[in-house]
Write a protein that binds this DNA or RNA. Structure first.
Lengths: 218, 218
DNA sequence: AATAATATTTAGGTTTGCCTAAATATTAAA
DNA sequence: TTTAATATTTAGGCAAACCTAAATATTATT
């Protein structure tokens, strides 16, 4: 019923890697967790022994229903703490993640549910990622990638994916935060970079960045 | 610069046991930590190797200055989280401790200082224990034990020592919480039990309980 | 002061989670 | 399809933090 910090981190990471690509490879997981492939294999045996994983040697793995439940609860804790840090303690966008990485392993369910209530049941964390509710339900955003947005269609930034310190710093510099409304004015044929208009100011962003921003038309 | 959960718990517990009795014994520590004497010896070697303890085999140990600094910072985190849980999340008196035991090991200094600010720099936790400030200074209460209070002298409950689920539950039943003003009306010669008046209601408490309550005359 | 009782430490073992190096599977290239 | 490259697993070890049982110190008792 209670899992170690390591186990929780493995489950959470598999959960994130699983989105899209259905099955997760040993090396991909090792890289995300800053560990070695052999260590991953060890843990995979342990977790599948506990029934948290579907695992066949040499063919990636995926979470079982039980495993997914645990992963979602870790994600819930992480995002609620991020929300708390940003909204109550005035933490900067890019600082919340690392502190929440620690807080997420405090396992009291009561703590998290009361925190949720205290915060007013927020829907998304400071990066726009949805916060699972206490039953483990995750609301799916109907957002599209900025790169897929039509020309001249105004849209609001909802979420940042592939978050890293670098991308968050970059967005801060370009003054692109959640809630900002923008539209694509031009896509340069040469390198696919995009000319974006926001509040009558033009900004240029790379194709890569446009793939990491999720927007909703307004 | 960074210490494990175990190390922090050892340092914190030595700090608590040290108050009063200057030096701490292996067995006393083992009992408090729910572990075995041999495990304590192992850890003592490790901590004194790191310069956090004064330790001579077979003669107890005490914290070095550096060790005390770490212990105090753990105590600070613990009590701030307790305050947060009680004041913001409406946790019950006796529930805060165990959750704070986990939260106290989240090590970000920035987190704790911002939490302190957010809470308005509280002076004491929900049990009346003083919260060390960010420089590690601990304000000493000028409280006395209820058992040492003079007859008919009104006093306010400031602090509960030797906290345990049992004592907190007991206090709740007797409706004795922090801030309550009371006075001793009689001490029974037979068993030293005390007749206490609070808000014109009489309560009987044992000598033992009266040793665990700190009060300040009003 | 000698012996018994108690406290502490040492010796040797376990589990968790990690590692490197070697072996084996799978996939890609010639 | 045979070989080369890559991915994964196995084997054997290590450190942290715990354990039991045995050895050694200290303290208390007669």
């Amino acid at each position: 019923m209670n899992y170690s910090v390591s186990e929780e981190n493995y489950l959470k990471t598999i959960f994130h890697l699983q989105e899209g690509s259905d099955t997760v490879s040993t090396n991909a997981l090792a890289e995300k967790l800053n560990t070695k492939a052999a260590s991953v294999t060890d843990m995979m045996k342990k977790l599948s022994g506990k029934g948290l994983l579907n695992y066949t040697p040499y063919y990636g793995f995926s979470l079982s229903n039980e495993g997914k439940k645990i992963a979602v609860s870790v994600v819930r804790r992480h995002r609620l703490w991020e929300y708390f840090l940003a909204s109550r303690l005035n933490f900067d966008w890019k600082e919340v993640h690392s502190v929440a990485e620690e807080l997420e392993h405090v396992s009291s369910k009561k703590l998290i549910d009361k925190l949720d209530e205290y915060l007013g049941y927020p829907q998304t964390d400071p990066h726009g990622d949805p916060i699972p509710d206490s039953k483990g339900r995750v609301s799916q955003t109907q957002a599209i990638r900025l790169v897929d947005l039509s020309l001249h269609q105004p849209a609001e930034i909802l979420q940042v994916i592939n978050q890293s310190d670098e991308i968050l710093e970059h967005l801060k510099e370009k003054q692109l935060h959640l809630g900002i409304v923008l539209e694509i004015k031009k896509i340069h044929a040469f390198d696919q970079s995009l000319e974006i208009k926001r509040k009558n100011k033009m900004v240029t962003i790379t194709q890569e960045l446009a793939k990491s921003l999720l927007v909703k038309t307004v």
